[in-house]
């Protein structure tokens, strides 16, 4: 009798676990998804800021932006995930991260990604890689390594670079550290144009 109860419990647990884990597994198998952990970008540093918006939260966000920000909704509704990690660097670690950016770009190119922008200037690196399927861009990976900060961004989903560019220029965003949001660490700074 006890065995039957255990079997039933195990079946239910497996079922619930399978349904809950499906969405996450599915995202990680998406061609535009980049697993930060496998890139070796974290090294010994803890990220100063982490953003991980996906799944139901992203859809809820797109829905809530419908009325007052239709442009943002238009972008968000086609995305599956927005992930960012930033690291505070010093003179010792900055060089390592510049090499990391180069290695990551090569790693991604070996997996069908295309580096569309690669810029270097006085110890700074910027790379933008895209993953395409047919004519559609399904993944965007951006690396920016400066003297004092490195940022890695992965956007998964159906991406229109023009739309993101226009939205980015139009956004009037307060720095994250000005928000009273204690749940996560804030980045050291948010640049503004």
């Amino acid at each position: 009798m006890k065995g039957r109860i255990i079997i039933l419990g195990a079946m239910l647990a497996l079922l619930l676990g399978a349904t809950a884990g499906w969405a996450q597994d599915n995202l990680e198998k998406h061609p535009g998804y980049v697993d930060f952990k496998t890139l070796g970008i974290s090294r010994d540093l803890e990220p100063t800021a982490e953003v991980n918006i996906k799944g139901s939260l992203l859809r809820l966000l797109a829905g809530s932006a419908a009325e007052d920000d239709p442009q943002l909704k238009s972008v968000l509704k086609r995305l599956l995930a927005i992930r960012v990690e930033t690291y505070e660097l010093d003179s010792l670690t900055a060089g390592g991260y510049q090499k990391t950016a180069e290695n990551v770009a090569k790693y991604l190119e070996g997996r069908g990604w295309e580096t569309i922008v690669s810029a270097r200037e006085r110890g700074e690196r910027a790379k933008i890689c895209i993953k395409t399927e047919g004519d559609a861009i399904v993944g965007l990976f951006v690396m920016s390594v400066e003297r004092d900060e490195a940022a890695f961004v992965n956007i998964v989903g159906n991406i229109d670079p023009d739309e993101i560019g226009k939205l980015g220029r139009d956004l009037d965003i307060s720095p994250l550290d000005s928000m009273d949001l204690p749940a996560k660490k804030s980045p050291k700074k948010t640049k503004s144009h």
Binding site: V51, L76, V142, M143, A151, I164, L171
Partner: peptide, 23 residues
């Protein structure tokens, strides 16, 4: 949570744009 996610999403999109513009 939503307010935070909205700020983070915009911040990420702007970060992408900044890198693109700088490059």
């Amino acid at each position: 949570d939503l307010a935070r996610a909205r700020v983070e999403a915009k911040w990420a999109l702007r970060l992408v744009n900044q890198v693109g513009e700088r490059a």
